[in-house]
Design a protein around this nucleic acid. Structure first.
Lengths: 187, 187
DNA sequence: AAGCGCACGTAGCAATCGCTACATATGGGA
DNA sequence: TCCCATATGTAGCGATTGCTACGTGCGCTT
């Protein structure tokens, strides 16, 4: 009965999660105002009203996505024991990233990387923020007693990102063979 | 005087290099028919005439780019001595990829990766072809007497791609620190 | 000479793009 | 009560999108 679904005026903050859901599902490249608005239950008119410009909308959206990503990592830190070896850590991360639930985010990630490489406004900032977050998370996850947690975390970061890229282009097998040959996966 | 600039009828083969130059300069994402045609000295009308569809044009173009990339690698093989250590090989490749002349190709590469992740038609095939080419090239470049050229090539491939991705998002420094920590770069 | 098909130009179509002009309902402060 | 800012709907603008209809010159075959 209660027609509660009417009142609250929308704002950037209430729109961003809905917009994020839409780009996760359909991609950033094909995101034009009207489909975006429809996905968020508004009109293109209101998106421009709240964000001023599509470009600004994308910038705000990327920043919001980076924040959500950071919060997600913080959440994972809490409920998890530290692995005891680098190989176990790599294996765990690859398993997490390979989870089908992560796929939409991975697709979005490569669009962000491409935009960052091209210098599109907001992309490099968002990408940098997420990698920053990931590297401190990785340092915190390094095995206790690791001889070089800082350098090792950056090493694993590099290897893991390379693996994800190869997986994205259908060469996950080559990447796994590489990790085995590099002693980064338990045989 | 001789009005030689008129006769030869255009074909897919004569158009593809010009189209490639255009996407290298301006990106795949923003490539619409009319700018593309202008860059190649034709009209949108003729692009559709020769390729049938924009989607088919992109597919053919990606395939052509992969071929050019393969030929480029073959060319590099010829005039180069094999490095004597894995570290030297990594260093040489990073130097090549960091060359400003490679930047347009790198930008294009990340767009291809993003398209491949999203499953856009033709992207995964092109990406796979290029990585295939790269991995055999890498195997051929592995130092003489390397204990595991096949696995090692895939290991280096993974590490190098990770490094390039981090560089693309402004984290080239973290990648270099990681390579140092991983013993993959001479200190 | 008569036709015929390839290679192109010119014009335009419906759809979509980002964005704006204009009207209006609403609700709180003076 | 008056007033005015906020939040929204409706229409539409000019530009661009991929693509098509229609004509036409040109070379080749018959």
């Amino acid at each position: 009965m209660s027609p509660r679904s009417k009142k609250p005026p929308m704002s950037k903050d209430s729109l961003l999660p809905l917009l994020m859901a839409h780009v996760l599902a359909h991609g950033l490249g094909q995101a034009s105002l009207r489909p975006l608005a429809k996905g968020a239950g508004t009109s293109d008119r209101m998106l421009i009203y709240h964000f001023g410009t599509k470009e600004q909308l994308v910038v705000d959206l990327l920043s919001h996505i980076a924040q959500v990503y950071a919060a997600m990592l913080e959440g994972v830190i809490a409920g998890q024991d530290r692995p005891t070896t680098r190989e176990a850590l790599v294996e765990r991360i690859l398993a997490q990233n390979g989870d089908p639930a992560m796929q939409p985010f991975m697709h979005l990630w490569w669009e962000i990387v491409a935009g960052s490489a091209r210098g599109l406004p907001g992309f490099r900032e968002a990408a940098r923020a997420m990698v920053d977050e990931l590297v401190v998370w990785l340092e915190g996850q390094m095995p206790a007693g690791d001889p070089d947690p800082a350098g090792g975390a950056r090493y694993l970061l590099t290897v893991i990102e390379g693996t994800m890229m190869l997986a994205a282009v259908g060469h996950g097998d080559a990447a796994r063979e590489g990790l085995l040959a590099g002693g980064l996966l338990p045989s």
